[in-house]
């Protein structure tokens, strides 16, 4: 057991290190876009306010009284598009890497997959190590986004004169922006968003392993399995939107969670079976 755990740690470390450059690059990119973008938007708005004040001869306090100050949300609202692009970049790169993490072992230098599959411990550890690595990337980017919002609040306090500031708590700031989709403030929302994300990762893993085991037929089978699970989940979600449906929303929620759990279990079981006896180099 202990040997297996150490092997898992070693393999996960290997995977995390392999993605190090890209992860740090993504973190730098989103920080630059979100913090740099906020700074630029703030400067533009402040210069507009200054010229408005100069023209009218008002004080900052009088300006705030008439124009209700300058809130961080207002500034972040102007950045919505670029923030979305930055986050979408992270999602696309991590999603793509969910497949690349398998294929680079096969198509990389010196048939690395062969060496990995010949290691003297259960092959399923390979699966778990790759899953642990992807989860580490996802939650690192999640945590980084929280740090960036804290940085944006700090920047807001540094750049905006206190007479113009509109105070908000940290959580309230996140809650009031579109970021709340990726950084949920509710436990159920977190479990659903990241539970769905986890199942998508597992289904992509299974698709990659089916393709490595049965080539084109496997690929088609994997895609069909993923599509079936996805269609079922979307159907349940849409069913909850339809207020005339036979099942009540809470019942559909239970089914949605059930489908998530069954999909995850099926993907894990299939991955274990394929790695044990089917996958070859």
């Amino acid at each position: 057991m202990k040997t297996n755990l150490i092997a898992l740690l070693k393999l996960a470390d290997l995977e995390i290190r392999r993605f190090r450059g890209i992860l740090l690059g993504l973190m730098a990119l989103v920080a630059l876009i979100q913090l740099g973008g906020l700074s630029m938007v703030t400067r533009t708005r402040l210069s507009q306010i200054e010229s408005q004040i100069e023209r009218s001869g008002m004080t900052l306090a009088e300006f705030k009284l008439q124009n209700s100050g300058l809130s961080l949300l207002e500034l972040l609202g102007e950045l919505d598009g670029v923030t979305g692009v930055a986050i979408a970049c992270c999602i696309v790169v991590v999603a793509a890497y969910t497949l690349i993490i398998w294929y680079r072992d096969w198509f990389g230098r010196a048939s690395f997959a062969y060496r990995l599959l010949m290691l003297p411990h259960p092959r399923f550890l390979l699966y778990l190590s790759k899953l642990a690595a992807i989860l580490t990337f996802v939650f690192s980017l999640f945590a980084w986004q929280i740090v960036i919002v804290a940085g944006q609040m700090l920047l807001y306090h540094v750049q905006i004169p206190h007479q113009l500031r509109i105070e908000r708590t940290f959580i309230d700031t996140i809650r009031s922006t579109d970021l709340v989709i990726f950084i949920p403030v509710r436990l159920t929302e977190f479990l659903l968003v990241y539970g769905l994300g986890l199942v998508i990762v597992l289904l992509l893993f299974t698709t990659a392993l089916l393709e490595r085991s049965y080539r084109l037929k496997g690929l088609l089978g994997g895609l069909a399995l993923s599509a079936a699970a996805f269609v079922l989940l979307v159907w349940l979600w849409a069913g909850a939107e339809d207020r005339g449906s036979f099942l009540y929303p809470t019942e559909l929620l239970a089914l949605f969670i059930g489908v998530l759990l069954v999909s995850a279990a099926a993907a894990l079981w299939l991955g274990w079976r394929l790695l044990r006896g089917k996958v070859s180099v």
């Binding site: 509710r186 769905l196 929303p249 809470t250 949605f256």
Partner: peptide
């Protein structure tokens, strides 16, 4: 209230 995305329709 609010701040729901995926769970929003699942309310009785």
């Amino acid at each position: 209230t609010g701040s729901r995305f995926l769970s929003a329709p699942f309310h009785d």
